[in-house]
């Protein structure tokens, strides 16, 4: 195992004191260190939001792009260089709201990347508006009379469209979070982890205690996470009856690289050897 401190940077962190992100960041460093991945072998990709600042707080390759648009560049860079470990760190607004379409099609494309969503059920960076996972009726700094839209169930969504690795973790259980991250990073294909995380500044409903009182770990001995229908049912569990943590669904399936076989078999695309003259043969097609 590497020393997780190789991932440290000296730059100032601008998250609120007490933010759940402070547990997720060291968990990620721990997971990468345990997997013996060097900083230059990893890319942290994000959109915009509090969680999306993660690339700035780590010594690793980073791509802090546009709001909602973390998934497309992450896929692009993985396709370009399969030797990179590409990990998305973004929030619920970024991943499920503005970037919803990319999530759907990213799962379908099944490029081997890990998508870690810091889900605090609220917009933090823009100061407290409803997110796609905010409860119906919850009052916010924008929805004064209560949120008028139903929340989505991101994990049920992911299972329904065939994501091969669907997990949930809680920022308050670092050890478990590290294990889930490691498993997701090692999984070949699109891996989604929804990490529950309190926003101490803007979400007065889903507090640390609220989560702590409801989360429970799936019993691996009795739960078969390869059963998609059971996983869908599990993914729908939410609220006072308990919120399951763990790998809800796991299935080995062909990845983008299996489907574009020369990528799997050949060198990384970035190492493709090519000269202009190599394309001259196509002139025959126009004779």
């Amino acid at each position: 195992m590497l020393d997780p401190r190789i991932y440290d940077v000296k730059d100032e962190i601008s998250w609120c004191p007490g933010c759940g992100n402070y547990n997720i960041l060291p968990s990620l460093k721990q997971a990468l260190a345990e997997l013996e991945l060097q900083p230059h072998q990893v890319v942290i990709v994000s959109g915009i939001g509090q969680a999306a600042k993660t690339p700035h707080y780590m010594n690793a390759n980073g791509f802090n792009g546009l709001h909602g648009r973390a998934v497309p560049p992450a896929q692009g860079m993985k396709i370009a260089n399969k030797n990179l470990k590409v990990i998305i760190h973004s929030g619920d607004g970024d991943s499920y709201g503005e970037g919803g379409n990319h999530l759907l099609h990213g799962i379908r494309r099944n490029v081997d990347i890990t998508h870690i969503v810091h889900n605090n059920q609220i917009y933090g960076l823009t100061k407290g508006q409803a997110s796609p996972t905010t409860a119906l009726g919850q009052k916010t700094t924008m929805q004064f009379d209560g949120n008028t839209s139903d929340p989505i169930s991101p994990l049920a969504l992911a299972v329904s469209i065939g994501c091969g690795f669907v997990a949930r973790a809680f920022s308050g259980d670092k050890e478990h979070l590290v294990e889930i991250m490691k498993e997701a990073i090692n999984y070949k294909g699109y891996a989604l982890i929804d990490v529950l995380q309190p926003c101490i500044a803007f979400n007065k409903v889903n507090t640390f205690k609220w989560y702590k009182d409801r989360v429970y770990k799936i019993d691996d001995t009795s739960y078969d996470n390869s059963d998609r229908v059971a996983a869908f049912q599990k993914a729908l569990e939410w609220g006072d009856n308990g919120i399951p943590l763990g790998v809800l669904y796991r299935q080995e399936k062909s990845t983008y690289f299996d489907r574009v076989s020369y990528l799997e078999e050949g060198p990384a695309l970035v190492d493709r050897i090519w000269q202009p003259k190599d394309a001259e043969r196509f002139m025959e097609d126009f004779r």
């Binding site: 792009g65 497309p72 992450a74 692009g76 993985k78 370009a80 990179l84 990319h102």
Partner: peptide
């Protein structure tokens, strides 16, 4: 050659690939 879900994805994906050096 990747047919993507929308043009937003097309250009962001291309930028990701460019970042990675292709």
């Amino acid at each position: 050659v990747e047919q993507v879900e929308d043009e937003i994805s097309a250009i962001n994906m291309a930028l990701g690939a460019s970042y990675a050096g292709v």
